[in-house]
Design a protein around this nucleic acid. Structure first.
Lengths: 228, 228
DNA sequence: TGGGATTTGTTCGTATGTATT
DNA sequence: GAATACATACGAACAAATCCC
């Protein structure tokens, strides 16, 4: 029996599309188009947009179409600063609850990541983030899971805006190293690795090369002179 | 000139009412009642409820009335654990941006708190939380502000559910101490004070005495055997 | 600058599912 | 267990604001 009430469906699908960068920042998201696409009414399409707005993935201004969010560089730095603080909290909690099963699950996930990167599949962006979400799950703290999930989503958006293309290759190796450190039960070392990893992710996301021409002029103007 | 579009009004008012504990956890919040009360359509009432759901203040289940959220004890512990982690991050940032103006603003706020506590005004609950939000503002990190705002809201809800009545007296003194430590520019001491303060708040919230009879039987049953 | 197209905000009627008696 | 009351979900239709050319 399939679920009848698919009210949450547009929310999940939209979120996925934004994170996988199928929907570019700034793109318009009219309620009726969303609703028609997912086979639900405007009521639920709107609910999905409001919820995504709450997570910072969608901008909503009265009497205007919702758009995919367009975080500033300052916001991007703030996101990574808080990510570092929270993911540090995760490490000792995961170490304390470590098990063969957890280890196997994380390793299987990284294998998926590697496969996606090899095939140059856009879901690799999502998978790289979901590794951190899986870690947060293992912490057993529901608030850590909640906020890290949101921060990871925002990071994907930031990567779409400011990041180099194909910047997730190195992440796979760093994730494997992290698993090894966690398995050895050494929180200090694991925390250091986590910080280094997040620093690398931030660098890849923010210190882009001179490939700025990949963005249209309009996008660059918008990110430098936001219309308020 | 006052703002014309009051779409955000029900959200703000509802949030205030929940935080000040005028709306008890578990209370039903039908869309049309909300809309009628604030003079807006169900559309905006619904938007407010979805947004509050995103912040964890409201429970929404399909085809049922939204209700004021009803956090579990485990969630409560998670909230305070993350609060400690994030508010520690705030301290050095505020120290770095300290100024006479900041000091004056914070002291004025604490004065308001003291006045409300003296008059036994229910807004004292909200003011005590807003002190922490003001601190987060001064950090200059938008994500810290965002999450701490949410965590403070949830703390108020937790206090409503599990806390002793009149548990905000001591907070005023602790806030004053914190301001002094921040003004002396000693992050270490200020962090220690912050941790101690949050520990005290958590204790007041979770380690309630034997005044459980203040809650109705139904509430206690609900919090022990949630209906899912 | 202007005007048509687009899209939200709103209301109403109906249907459907849930809770209560 | 059935009937009733309740509240959301949906669709259509309309006005008002905004966008785009």
């Amino acid at each position: 029996m399939k679920q009848k009430t698919n009210g949450a469906l547009p929310y999940l699908k939209l979120r996925e599309a934004i994170i996988e960068q199928a929907l570019a920042p700034g793109m318009k998201l009219p309620e009726d188009v969303i609703g028609a696409h997912f086979g639900v009414s405007r009521t639920l399409a709107r609910a999905a947009l409001v919820k995504l707005h709450g997570e910072g993935l969608v901008d909503i201004r009265p009497k205007r179409s919702a758009t995919v969010a367009h975080p500033s560089i300052e916001e991007a730095r703030d996101v990574f600063a808080v990510r570092r603080a929270l993911e540090q909290q995760v490490v000792p909690l995961v170490v304390a609850r470590w098990s063969k099963q957890v280890e196997a699950e994380l390793k299987a996930h990284v294998a998926q990541e590697a496969a996606a990167v090899a095939k140059d599949n856009p879901i690799s962006i999502r998978l790289a983030g979901e590794f951190h979400i899986k870690l947060a799950e293992k912490s057993g703290n529901s608030m850590l899971l909640r906020y890290i999930t949101e921060l990871v989503s925002r990071s994907s958006l930031i990567l779409a805006l400011y990041g180099r293309p194909h910047s997730s290759e190195c992440a796979v190796n760093e994730h494997m190293e992290l698993i090894r450190a966690l398995g050895k039960g050494d929180p200090e070392h694991a925390i250091a690795l986590m910080n280094h990893h997040l620093g690398a992710v931030e660098e890849r996301a923010l210190l882009r090369g001179d490939e700025n021409e990949q963005l249209g002029l309009e996008d660059i103007l918008k990110q430098r002179f936001p219309r308020r």
